[in-house]
Simulated assay, not measured.
Amino acid sequence: MFETIDYLQFGNKNQKRAYLAIENLGIMHSLSEYNPILCDTLPIGIDIESSDLDIIMNVVEFTSFEQKVTTLYGNYQDFKLKKLSIRNVPVIKANFTFDGFEIELFGQPKPVKEQYAYLHMIIENSILNDYPNLKDEVIILKEQRIKTELAFCKLLGLEGDPYDALLEFGKCKEIIHSF
């Protein structure tokens, strides 16, 4: 369902705005070689006013990605680019502001459907489908500046590192099968 952003056209007000912003920027087309997928809270309808648009990608060659992203989006407000390591995996991130949204382009040398952001979103979406009453509670916790994964873990009684705990929950519930 999340491979394209078409579903956003029929979503809530913020999802429709996000669709237009992403389309106007041409991100999904211009960066298609990296298999971009919009992840995090907005696709599953638990976004809050300060939520950004996180687009994850499979980026192996950082130099060419950096050049392309800088050429395409370097002139946008608050543009910054950095390279770092997360969980011992090299990562490149570009951030900028467009049409009222903070946008993060996140790349790592890993297929997008194996990245934490995608897996967490799939698990969270499944949980919300099974327990729709949790949606409002997650949003309340997010408005208190609690990260999404931690909010779900608190509500589900999961302990330990929230990123790992949520993945383990997804494996146990057979929400995700690709490990």
Rank of each mutant, 00 (worst) to 15 (best):
H120F: 01
L150S: 11
L141T: 08
A117E: 07
P132N: 14
L155F: 14
M121D: 04
V112E: 14
A117V: 00
F101H: 04
I103V: 12
K83G: 02
I122D: 00
L134F: 15
K147N: 05
E124M: 10
N129D: 14
P162Y: 09
Y131T: 13
N133L: 13
I103R: 02
L156W: 12
F79E: 04
C153D: 02
D164S: 15
E104D: 08
K110I: 12
K80Q: 10
L167T: 09
E124H: 12
E102M: 08
P90W: 02
L81M: 11
P132S: 14
I146K: 07
H120S: 03
D130E: 14
L150D: 11
A151W: 10
L119W: 04
F98Q: 02
E149D: 15
L105I: 08
L158G: 11
V138M: 10
L105Y: 03
I146R: 04
L84E: 02
N88G: 07
L128D: 07
P90A: 03
F101T: 04
E102F: 05
A117C: 01
E168F: 00
A165C: 04
F101D: 01
I127K: 11
S126E: 15
E168S: 12
V112K: 03
M121I: 06
L150E: 15
P111W: 10
F106Y: 13
E137C: 04
D78G: 00
K147I: 09
G107H: 07
K82N: 13
K142Y: 11
F79K: 05
I140S: 15
F98W: 09
R87G: 08
V91M: 03
F101I: 07
L81T: 02
K135P: 05
V91C: 06
V89A: 06
R87L: 04
K80W: 01
V138I: 15
P132R: 11
I123P: 05
F152C: 11
L134V: 11
M121G: 05
